[in-house]
Structure formats: C-alpha cells, structure tokens
Write a protein that binds this DNA or RNA. Structure first.
Length: 339
DNA sequence: GTGCCGGC
DNA sequence: GCCGGCACG
C-alpha cells in the first residue's frame, strides 16, 4: 500500500500464502484503523475526493466496511474489528510526522487539481485521509447492525488484536503492519484488501506470517525481533540512523542482548526500555464478547440508505448475500457453529 | 472496496 | 466467458 507505516520488517521475513478458503470457519481480528485508512485511501473519485453523503460527510470508509465485512462473512470467515484507543505518548512524534505528511499531501493535491493532473491528484489525496470520531462511530454502528462484533482497544488496536490471537479467541490478526508481530500475534494476515480477484469468485491468496516461524527462520527470540524493530525504528521510536533491516539483523544475530546490542549500535539503551515494554506488555482488555449475529437488515438500511444516501438496492443486494442462518444473540446454532 | 456493464 | 473501466456516495 501507499502509506508504509509501522516497522519495516518486509526485507527480513518470508511470508507464506494462504487461500481465503482456508480461513473458512476461522475468526480473524481486523486492525480496524488500518483497514479504514486503506478504504479512505482507495475508495475515491478520479480527482481524489472521497465519497460523501448529501451533507458532505465522508462515506468511503462505510463502503469499505460494508463490502469487506460482507465478503468475509460470505466466505464463512468471522471478522471482529478492533479499534484503536488512546495512542501511547511514545507515538506522539510519529503522529505529528503523519500530520505533516497529510498537510503536505493536501497542498500537493490542490496543486495537482489546479494543474489538471488527475493522476497525481488522486495519489496525493489518498495520503490526506483523516478519521474523525463521527466516522469511527458510523463504522461501528454499521458493524453492529451487520451483527459483526467490534472491540474497543484501550490503546493500540494491533496490540489488542495480537492479544486476542494469543489467547486463542481469534485464529489470526489481520493488518498491513508488521508491528502486530512485535506485539506477539502468533499469526498475521496481510494483503486482505489486495485480493481483487476475490470479487470475481476466485479463491484469492493472502500473505500469511507466523511469529514462531519468523523468529525460527531468523534464529532469534521474540524479544530480539522487537530489538530489530527498535533498531530500524517503529511507530514508538526513531530508529538508529544508518541501520536498516540487514544491519539490524546482523547486530542482533550476535545475541549480545538488548543493552549491549543497542550500545554497539551507538544508542543509549535505557531510553528504549519503554518501547520494549510497550511491545511486550501493551495495554489490552478482556472486556469483549465475540458473537456473530444475523444482520439487522432494517438497521443497516436505515444507517446507510436513509442516513448516508447509499443506493437501497445496492445495500439490499449485499444483505441478501450474507449467511441467513445466523440467529439472534445467544442461540448456539449461530455462526458460532462455523468457528 | 466491490459490483456490473459492455467490449472483445 | 474474461477483463478493463467506470460507478458508487
């Protein structure tokens, strides 16, 4: 995707592939903000403007939520969307940097529009995506109406998704960010979105990473994987100038431990202890109930059609595709039977 | 993101 | 049938 955020582990890991059909009957925790930002970046008009309703409120993310949730349920996959809570203080400089990138992209978007360069306009517009509280609340309301559970993470959604996967409440976490592995997710799915062929009925493939295999292949522990992340840089620390994935791996492979490795890399280790602690012991909650219910058709139509001007027959068609066997809450012959 | 239409 | 490209909100 365009916005490469999180730790850059791509050059070190060798992801496997998984057919979507292999996810059938399995619960998957979706990094909601990660998905919503992807929708906002992708679901735009030619000039870069996102979809909006008659009141000018952005709806692109709702299009994504509707179709993504429906297509997963239709395939027998049980999605649970995990939303970010309050970001860690350690993330503030990353967030500031992202805000600046957005402002710069906004200016470039305006310039490209003025110049009539639609291709650049759309590209730059994709980088300006913002999520408001109202947009998040809208997405959550649609999910609830669809009978699909969502979880409010205390802080990082990825950390919460990783926790749920570790506990076995879900089979895997889905995010484009490798940070999810540092947070201890045993299984990570990437590229859930880039499966265009999926919509043509194919059994598309997604990237599949197991933290156990990653560490085994690299011959390191999970803490050493975190150390690699810290050396390269994560959303929670800057990283060491001049050290990329290769050099970080080389340093860590000497197995000298956290302090000695960081010292050798020329940084003060003590300042980075909070980053390690964040990855090893992130804020999580057990306050969630995973239950997949039959969609409340009238509610979905009210939210999207009445509330946001979606085409009624379009939404109805999506609803018609959803598994109908899903009963109301508490009944055991539910979609629970799939998972 | 995904459906759908119309061209081959 | 398959595939590119537009439409959707």
């Amino acid at each position: 995707m365009l916005e490469a955020v999180g730790v850059k582990l791509r050059d070190l890991v060798h992801p496997g592939k998984l057919h979507l059909s292999e996810l059938k009957g399995r619960r998957v925790a979706l990094d909601a903000y990660n998905m919503l930002y992807q929708f906002l970046a992708t679901i735009r008009q030619a000039d870069g403007h996102p979809f909006t309703d008659a009141e000018g409120r952005v709806t692109s993310h709702l299009v994504g939520v509707l179709y993504r949730t429906a297509s997963m349920l239709e395939r027998g996959v049980l999605p649970v969307w995990v939303f970010d809570g309050k970001p860690s203080d350690l993330k503030s400089s990353t967030l500031r940097a992202r805000a600046m990138v957005k402002e710069k992209a906004q200016r470039a978007w305006n310039e490209a529009l003025a110049a009539g360069d639609l291709e650049t306009a759309r590209k730059k517009a994709a980088q300006t995506s913002r999520l408001t509280r109202e947009m998040v609340a809208d997405a959550q309301a649609v999910l609830s109406a669809m009978g699909t559970p969502w979880v409010q993470a205390p802080s990082e959604g990825e950390a919460q998704a990783a926790f749920m996967a570790e506990k076995g409440d879900v089979w895997a976490a889905a995010s484009e960010d490798y940070d999810t592995l540092l947070f201890g997710a045993p299984r990570l799915l990437r590229g859930l979105g880039s499966a265009r062929s999926a919509s043509r009925g194919d059994d598309a493939e997604v990237e599949f990473l197991e933290v156990g295999k990653v560490t085994q292949e690299l011959g390191i522990s999970r803490e050493e994987l975190i150390l690699i992340g810290v050396l390269i840089g994560t959303d929670f620390n800057e990283g060491v100038p001049g050290i990329g994935p290769k050099k970080a791996m080389k340093l860590v492979a000497e197995h000298q431990g956290w302090e000695a490795t960081l010292q050798k890399a020329g940084v003060d280790p003590t300042g980075l202890d909070p980053v390690r602690d964040l990855f090893l012991h992130p804020a999580t909650t057990e306050d969630y109930h995973l239950q997949w219910k039959a969609p409340d058709t009238a509610k979905v139509l009210e939210l999207l059609v009445t509330g946001h001007g979606f085409g009624a027959d379009r939404v109805q068609k999506v609803l018609d595709r959803l598994p109908k066997s899903a009963p109301s809450s508490g009944v055991q012959t539910s979609l629970e039977a799939f998972g």
